[in-house]
């Protein structure tokens, strides 16, 4: 049971519960059913990780939260502009102009709640204390957002463990959920559990 694939599956299960809780929270916030794609887990070289993103120069709206203490991981939510508009519209029940302070504030708050649900579940199931940073916001090319996140992680081994799934609701609304553990966390998750 000690081979790499078993370990990766175990990690995926742990993250799965958190993602499920996040989807539940989103469903309550927007008052719509939310489905989750089966999460995929990848342990890949940094170059290959970019291939998973699809078009790296596509415009995306993102919220990123990094956990620096406890379990070191980054959580990145990516969506296209249309989905971001829908999150704000359904969540706030008001049509704020896109890119306005209110728009960004509501989007950040909703994404913050989703990530917090995920991290709380993770902290409980792994019995670790998790202290996240303040979430950060960007609207830019997907690749530019992602290379910043990876560079901030200072991934010395140039290997990336990545869990990707999508939260999907009706009306073509999709939020991609990316979980990126840092190097020493990968070791912890792979070896100690």
């Amino acid at each position: 049971m000690n081979n790499l694939n078993d370990r990766l599956n175990e990690i995926k299960k742990i993250f799965n519960i958190g993602i499920y809780k996040s989807a539940e929270a989103l469903s309550k916030l927007i008052n719509k059913p939310v489905m989750i794609n089966i999460p995929e887990i990848y342990l890949k070289s940094l170059e290959e990780t970019f291939d998973l993103l699809g078009q790296v120069d596509e415009k995306a709206v993102s919220i990123y939260m990094r956990v620096k203490e406890g379990l070191k991981i980054g959580v990145l939510l990516l969506m296209n502009e249309d989905s971001a508009k829908k999150v704000v519209k359904y969540g706030a029940k008001v049509d704020f102009p896109e890119g306005s302070d209110y728009f960004i504030g509501v989007l950040e708050e909703i994404c913050n709640i989703l990530i917090s649900y995920f991290l709380n579940t993770l902290a409980n199931s792994l019995k670790v204390k998790i202290l996240p940073d303040v979430p950060d916001f960007a609207i830019d090319m997907k690749g530019a957002i992602f290379d910043f996140v990876l560079a901030e992680h200072k991934n010395e081994s140039l290997k990336v463990l990545l869990v990707i799934t999508d939260l999907i609701s009706d009306d073509n609304f999709k939020i991609s959920f990316l979980i990126i553990p840092e190097d020493d966390t990968i070791e912890k998750l792979l070896i100690k559990r």
Partner: peptide, 19 residues
């Protein structure tokens, strides 16, 4: 993480450069 060499009339390009 790559480097590519070429000569005219070729074109080199990068996409989605952040940091």
């Amino acid at each position: 993480g790559n480097a590519v060499w070429a000569k005219s009339p070729d074109v080199l390009y990068c996409k989605g450069l952040g940091s």
